[in-house]
Design a protein around this nucleic acid. Structure first.
Length: 569
RNA sequence: CGGGGCGUAGCGCAGCCUGGUAGCGCACCACACUGGGGGUGUGGUGGUCGCAGGUUCAAAUCCUGCCGUCCCGACCA
């Protein structure tokens, strides 16, 4: 491809409405343009990258004998009513009506459509297992689209679905899929982790997420430094402390703490370590109108996913209003504590071994110090409530946890019979008996991967593409091509040669000054550059430079393309 | 959904407070010079100032409503 015939839509200025580096660079390099919030056009250069990602995924799916299909993006409401999700899914499901007022939605995912297909097509266990996949645009009317294509409303997803006669068979496909995912992300040149995950609203028993490591990631993941334990922080267990409760040393005292409402204010005011404080968070209970107090160490964070799984707590988790708390507990948010609190309490594991701690006195502007379980308050029900932290012991007993930010780019689930039971997805087993199929589903955020790759690979000049997904592998930068006949001839000759070698090559033949060409090509992030200038050309030489390096290297014009061919494969 | 910011040329912004000819930089077009890191000069193209209403002799500017968009918190590939 020649730049003179291509759309190089680079911008010098960082767009005002972009926050993270990948979004800024995708717009500046001319990969995407926004049409509306969370809805983007992919320009030629961006689409090349997207297609490269898709093709790697496609190859690995085909390698494990998954079969590609395409399902409709517009889906009738009736299959959603059958699964129960027409009511459950909420406003993220974009609903529309056709001219006959029949209801449809834009597909946010395809469990309903695939289950409908499979229940009609498959009749026998002999046809199983079967895995189908598609790569397609999805639409989710996100509450808050952000960060460009990282969290868009319309986005490209690879979704695969497997069907089985038994859960053992599902487990096998699930494991195969997990390996295929690792291969895909390795081939994409990304630093990633596979982690245990909460299965969330899709339901089912077992799931893993694949995260690309990046500081801008919206998730936190925890992994052991000594074993292969890795989990989303939502899921990672904070194990019971090994130390035991020590004897009280202080007597309980009430202290006035005027205008102290947060833990950090309390710590400043009393000049005590934060690990000696506890906080009491009031949430709604599962019995209507009831409240539950959650007790955590002052420096710990509540894990809401863990909390809402506890029977006594309402799910989804909902924080109590301050009015109600005041009415029932006699004090506002900043002054609560477990001593004499007239509601159900649940303490985090780490709280259960604290002694001589500090907590709210359930009296406005007052706290208690030297509080001890048993003597001053009964130790309530103990649960794992908190978020794990850097340095916590690994739940498998091996090593300690590191906590890093991650971008979720893949998620695999064992769904079980959730959909096949709701939608009557049955086959005959070997005994001739009707039985529900067992199902797995497996997603990859294709367009999100493009953004994630940039988050992980960029510098002050722009994008640095991993070689497997770069829009072009090689750019030939011809300097002063308009005026110099020898440069033009050499550039054309190398360009043709590169094409013969099957290299994805871009020839920058624009009549622009060198600085503009260098800056554009570095912003776009093409891995390899050949620079053709009149001076070195007179000695039969051209220059080579990798995107990742500052230094140029001289190559004879004859060896240039073969040398680069070797770098690419 | 709650809280906050912003909407003026393709992009980045000033003007608004204190109403009176719509501006700057980049980009774009033409010509000339220049030609190894976003060059220089001259001349140009491009705007319903988000939309609607109101106040006023007069509104980008003041008032009201709406819309869009971005950021911060509960959801997800």
């Amino acid at each position: 491809m020649r730049t003179s015939q291509y759309l190089i839509a680079t911008q010098k200025e960082t767009p005002a409405d972009s926050e993270i580096i990948s979004h800024q660079l995708m717009v500046r390099a001319g990969l995407i343009r926004k049409l509306a919030s969370g809805i983007y056009t992919w320009l030629p250069l961006g689409l090349r990258v997207l297609r490269h990602v898709e093709n790697i995924i496609r190859e690995e799916m085909n390698n494990i004998s998954a079969l590609e299909i395409t399902m409709p993006m517009v889906q009738p409401s009736d299959v959603w009513e059958e699964s129960g999700r027409w009511l459950e899914y909420g406003p993220e499901l974009l609903r529309l009506k056709d001219r006959h007022s029949r209801e449809f939605c834009l597909g946010p995912t395809h469990e309903e459509v695939i289950t409908d297909l499979i229940r009609n097509e498959l009749k026998s266990y002999k046809q199983l297992p079967l895995t189908l996949y598609q790569i397609q645009s999805k639409f989710r009317d996100e509450v808050r689209p952000r960060f460009g294509v990282m969290r868009a409303r319309e986005f490209v997803m690879k979704d695969a679905y497997s069907f089985h006669a038994t859960s053992e068979c599902l487990q096998k496909t699930y494991d195969t899929m997990s390996e295929a995912y690792s291969k895909i992300f390795s081939r994409l040149g990304l630093e990633f982790r596979s982690v245990l995950a909460d299965s969330g609203s899709i339901g089912g028993d077992r799931s893993r997420e694949f995260h690309v490591l990046a500081a801008s990631g919206e998730d936190a993941i925890a992994f052991s430094n000594e074993s292969d334990y890795a989990a989303n922080i939502e899921k990672a267990e904070a194990i019971s402390p090994k130390t035991t409760l020590s004897e009280p040393k202080e007597i309980m005292k009430q202290v006035a703490t005027p205008n102290v409402h947060t833990i950090s204010e309390l710590v400043m005011f009393l000049k005590k370590p934060i690990s000696k404080t506890i906080k009491t968070i009031i949430v709604e209970g599962s019995d209507p109108g009831s409240l539950v107090g959650l007790i955590l160490r002052g420096d710990h964070q509540l894990n809401t996913i863990k909390a809402e799984k506890i029977d006594a707590i309402a799910s989804p988790l909902s924080f109590a209003s301050e009015d109600l708390v005041f009415k029932k507990c006699g004090a506002g948010f900043g002054s609560l504590g477990p001593v004499g609190l007239p509601i159900k309490l649940i303490a985090d594991r780490s709280v259960s071994i604290m002694s001589d701690f500090i907590c709210g006195a359930n009296k406005q502007d007052s706290h208690l110090t030297g509080v001890n379980w048993a003597r001053d308050a009964d130790l309530p029900q103990v649960e794992d409530l908190r978020q794990v932290e850097q340095g916590d012991p690994s739940p498998d007993g091996k090593g300690h946890l590191n906590v890093m930010r991650g971008i979720e780019v893949g998620h695999i689930f064992q769904l079980g019979e959730t959909y096949t039971r709701a939608m009557n997805g049955k086959i005959l087993d070997e005994k001739g008996k009707q039985t529900c199929m067992v199902m797995g589903c497996y997603g990859i955020g294709v367009s999100r991967i493009v953004a994630a790759a940039i988050e992980q690979n960029n510098d002050e000049k722009g994008i640095i593409w991993p070689k497997s997904i770069a829009p072009f592998s090689l750019v030939i930068i011809a300097l002063n091509i308009k005026k110099s006949n020898i440069v033009r001839e050499a550039a054309n000759q190398l360009y043709e040669q590169a094409k013969e070698f099957d290299i994805d090559v871009l020839l920058d033949d624009r009549d622009e000054r060198p600085g503009i060409k260098f800056a554009d090509m570095e912003l776009i992030g093409i891995p390899h550059q050949i620079i053709i200038g009149e001076n070195s050309l007179k000695e039969g030489k051209v220059e080579y430079r990798a995107r990742t390096e500052q230094e140029k290297r001289e190559l004879s014009i004859h060896e240039a393309i073969p040398a680069i061919q070797n770098l690419i494969v």
